[in-house]
């Protein structure tokens, strides 16, 4: 565990807490894509199947359970909470998840490290996480007056991915057997998807204006 990895995980955790805070404090999930949240739940579900087969560390197990629990509770609020569900922008959240789920599944079947069910599902989760933010970015573009917590939620998610790249560089330089092209390429693509968002986020911050994506 290096400082970049720890910072990345904590940023990821804080991003989820910011989203939960938004939902609890404002009783609203306006501007949040349920499609992206569904995809993240799928990502965690398939990636953390090794909870049952391999013990890595207490930290690892606890974080996996926290990510699974929080992602499903967010979905619960958005789908079923008496008040919150009415604030979901269903008409605006139109991205077709199938267009990213199917290609990721095909890619995981074709390009993987090992022909086993667990490995292919794990690889699928890596590919899917890379593009799972797309419905959220599309929804943000359509949202007038993006609120602070939503903007910060997406900003923290992008920061978490950027910090993972620093973690990989560090590990590549310090651990002799650390090679993972599938993870690296997916991670770089994922971080790249945020570049546009970051640009407008900093522009809004510098000019002291509300964030909006053109």
């Amino acid at each position: 565990m290096n400082i970049f990895r720890l910072a990345a995980d904590m940023t990821h955790l804080i991003s989820i807490l910011v989203l939960l805070l938004k939902i609890h404090a404002t009783r609203s999930c306006r501007g949040i894509s349920l499609k992206t949240q569904d995809l993240y739940a799928l990502v965690f579900l398939f990636r953390y199947l090794d909870l049952f087969t391999r013990y890595i560390s207490l930290y690892n197990t606890v974080m996996k359970l926290v990510f699974l629990g929080t992602s499903f509770s967010i979905i619960y609020f958005m789908r079923f909470h008496r008040v919150v569900r009415n604030t979901y922008d269903k008409e605006q959240d139109t991205f077709r998840s199938i267009f990213i789920v199917v290609p990721c599944a095909v890619l995981a079947l074709l390009i993987n490290q090992e022909r086993s069910v667990l490995e292919i599902l794990w690889t699928f989760s890596i590919y899917l996480e890379a593009v799972a933010i797309l419905p959220q970015l599309v929804l943000l573009q359509r949202t007038q007056n993006i609120d602070n917590l939503t903007g910060n939620y997406v900003f923290l998610l992008g920061t978490y991915r950027g910090l993972y790249i620093l973690n990989w560089i560090y590990r590549y330089l310090t651990e002799p057997h650390y090679r993972q092209w599938i993870v690296w390429l997916s991670g770089v693509l994922q971080t790249g998807l945020y570049v546009d968002f970051f640009y407008y986020y900093f522009l809004a911050w510098r000019n002291n204006q509300k964030l909006s994506l053109p």
Binding site: D50, N60, W122, Y178, Q180, V183
Partner: peptide, 10 residues
């Protein structure tokens, strides 16, 4: 072992 190391990530 090369493949296992990155599985300790989240």
């Amino acid at each position: 072992a090369g493949e296992e190391v990155s599985k300790d990530e989240l």
